[in-house]
Computed example of a mutant assay.
Amino acid sequence: MAECPSRHTGPAEATARNSPLALSHVLFRQSWHDVVFLHWEADPYEVARLLPSGTYPDLFHGRTFVGLVFFAMRNLAFGHAPPLPYVGAFTEVNVRLYSRDALGRRAVVFRSLDCDRLLPVLAARAGFGLPYRWSHASRRWHDNRLVYRSRGRRDGSRAGGSAWMEVGGKPARTRPMDDFLTQRWGLHESVRGRTYYLPNTHPAWTFLDCELLGWNASVVGAAGLAEPLDHPVSVLYAPGVPVRFGPPVRLPGRTDVP
């Protein structure tokens, strides 16, 4: 079980608009389109117990957050190979937390990832230990209004995530808290008791002004956190970015789960 205090980590990686590390080589590529970020404040001690061994809650002025993120995945490909047909395009809805490790690297930790393609779900669970779930997930545009919806198919859970918003055409101003939440250059996960860091790189985000019209975050409660009841503290929309992932790196030291 992870501990809460972040004093166990090294100096924090700087919040930067571009990846601070160059990838040694590209493991896989993908593009994220119509990205919607909804965030709520979370209890750091509740978050700590859900993180992989060797990682700790990343705090912004003493606060940590849970994110509900929606996007359309496109052009999934391995290395420099052409994009995979059919299975390389799907809608994803994920619940994520914010972590740091002993080297000070900031990352995300996924608590759930809903996807409407079965093969990527099976591959990501088997290869990377990521908590993907085969789900009904959809994205629809109605003029300038964007609607995302997801719910599970097989696990009997009615929990899902949804967001509907009006998107404008003007650039949006971001706050330091928004930068803290979105400028993330890796993920932490654990496979067979060993925690790893998977780096990524992509161009700087461009956010457009938007208004959240409605939402459902029951999937956050199903992911082991308190279900949000209040309006999100951060609402962002980005047209999208191409993303590259590098090879996973094990965290230093022994990180086996006791």
Score class of each variant (00 low, 15 high):
R145V: 07
D114M: 01
Q183N: 14
S6V: 14
M1W: 09
E211K: 13
P120T: 00
G221V: 05
L225A: 12
L84T: 11
T15R: 05
P5S: 12
P57K: 01
L198C: 07
R244W: 10
R125T: 09
L68S: 03
L146C: 03
P120S: 01
R106A: 15
S218F: 05
G160Q: 03
G62Y: 07
S135H: 06
V220Y: 01
V220P: 00
R100Q: 09
F128E: 06
R173W: 15
Y148T: 13
H231F: 14
R63Q: 13
D116P: 02
L225G: 09
Y98N: 11
L59P: 00
L118I: 13
G62M: 08
D58E: 10
H39F: 11
E166M: 02
P131F: 13
R96H: 09
R173I: 14
P242K: 08
A72G: 13
V191T: 13
A72D: 15
G127W: 05
P258S: 02
Y98E: 05
P52E: 04
K170Y: 05
A81V: 03
W185H: 08
S6Y: 04
G186S: 06
P44V: 15
L212R: 06
D155K: 01
W215F: 11
A77V: 01
E189I: 01
T201C: 13
D143G: 12
P258A: 01
D101E: 05
V109S: 11
E41K: 11
R133F: 12
W40A: 04
H25Y: 10
G253S: 06
S190P: 07
